[in-house]
Nucleic acid binder design. Structure first.
Length: 126
RNA sequence: CGAGUCGGCCGGACAGCCGCGGGCACAGGCCGAAAGGCCGUGCAUGAGGAAAGUCCGGGCUCCGCAGGGCAAGGAUAACGGGUAACGCCCGCCGAAGGCGACUUCAGGAAAAGUGCAACAGAGAUAUACCGCCGGCUCCGGCCGGUAAGGGUGGAAAGGCGGAGGUAAGAGCCCGCCCGACGGCGUGAGAGCGUCCGUCGCUGUAAACUCUAUCCGGAGCAACACCGUGGGAAAGCUGCGUUCGAUCGCGAGGCCUGCCCGGCCGCUUUCAGGAGGUGGCUUGAGCGUACCGGCAACGGUGCGCCUAGAUAGAUGGCUGUUCAAGACAGGACCCGGCUUACAGACCGACUCGCAUC
RNA sequence: GGAGAAGUCGCGUAGCCCGGUCGAGCGCGCACGAUUGGAAAUCGUGUAUACCCCAUAAGGGUAUCGAGGGUUCGAAUCCCUCCUUCUCCG
């Protein structure tokens, strides 16, 4: 497995905010946009100051990165993804964040479907 | 055993799988003419006592001045020492608190000067409201003396006592106490004193001020270097054309290795600054032994190298164990202070009770 | 990361420099009354919270100007330490 490639430049962040598809829950906001062809999908994480102090922000960021790493094989390749942590994300654990991430990824059509549940509606696992 | 005071030290540990940052190694793979880049594998390594607040003091960089002084503004404040320096630390003095160990103190000057002290009170830095005493009286009071008593206030002219004194009183006088200043003694000094003499003065300087000492400004998003696209100015030209760099062609460059086709004047300087590199970690460094010092700390020897990121590295899952893990994450670097904090351990000391 | 600024009644602000008159002025808002057939506008009066005293009402006391200390006889105001919010530097 290749290492996670991160989005670094502020200009790239702004382009994806403006042009990418997005979805949100009370914990997270997810932006996604098709990357350059032939390149692997990249990850960007935004945790604003309002979420908490440095320790809290680091914890949230680490959890989000781990969620992306462990669920990457289920995502459609070649998409740049930005996860924005909202204020309430400081109050919940790893499991809640992972559940919300998968729900949002599904809503944006990023999940690769297994052969079992290839459902046409395209909406909603839950 | 109980209650307490002060100081020091640590702040989860171990194991498995997956994962991250920078470093080193590789006759590993891919790209490249090369330098090198990306990936892979292996090895060791990778947040704090406060990394925090940004409250002080420095280093470092640029700007200013390049000699010194004064003014303005700011900071500090017993004394002696420590330190690169400090508003920090140690020791000591004084005051306040505590039975005590010990703790706290912006702790210079109010007799250089200015200001302020509301309300209350007769009176607030100068005073006579009630009272007391004497005198006068038209018997209503008036004049004079008086700070002992009442009352107001945070503060009322040193305090307590006196069958001393007086018309009544008052440091007017006497004894004791308190404070200030001078002498003498003592101490390195601030100070201290069963000593002598003189005096009795409201508080406030975190009001202005005075005295002594110190301070140029900004900050690593500083600063240095490389530099895309686009911009401005100056200079320059082989031929034709034009008032004229106005237009065209050529030369040269690019797409592109060649042809066709297409595009572009060239050079220098300036501003700007997408992005990148350095600054960036060996330092007033850490550990240890001995010596000096009451201590803070200093000296000598030996040993060690311990994050350097830039959307910013420590996480996820699981097991064992215990007291069940608090506050909290480097961002140029040090010395302090302040604030937050579950707990664990060590040492010194004080008071009370019991026993020997 | 660095450099600043500000917190006063429901909202916006004055007072702070140079302490006493200050629970604290003004505007908006809100409540009640007057005016009107009714409303708007206008005019007038009132208007913070908590705790305690009081049988209730009326009235009184104490505390609160972001929080906690300090100086002072006395603090919204002076000094210190925190907290919160906002702005600027790419």
């Amino acid at each position: 497995m290749k290492a996670t490639v991160t989005i670094k430049k502020n200009s790239e962040f702004r382009r994806i905010y403006n042009k990418g598809a997005n979805a949100a829950t009370s914990l997270l906001v997810l932006y996604a946009r098709k990357g350059r062809p032939g390149q692997t999908g990249r990850l960007g994480i935004t945790v604003g100051t309002k979420v908490g102090k440095a320790v809290v922000r680091n914890t949230v960021r680490r959890r989000l990165r781990e969620i992306y790493r462990l669920n990457r094989h289920r995502l459609r390749p070649g998409y740049d993804v930005i996860i924005v942590a909202r204020v309430r994300s400081r109050t919940v654990g790893y499991g809640d964040l992972e559940r919300d991430f998968l729900r949002l990824a599904d809503r944006l059509g990023l999940l690769v479907k297994d052969e079992k549940d290839t459902d046409i509606s395209g909406q909603g696992v839950s």
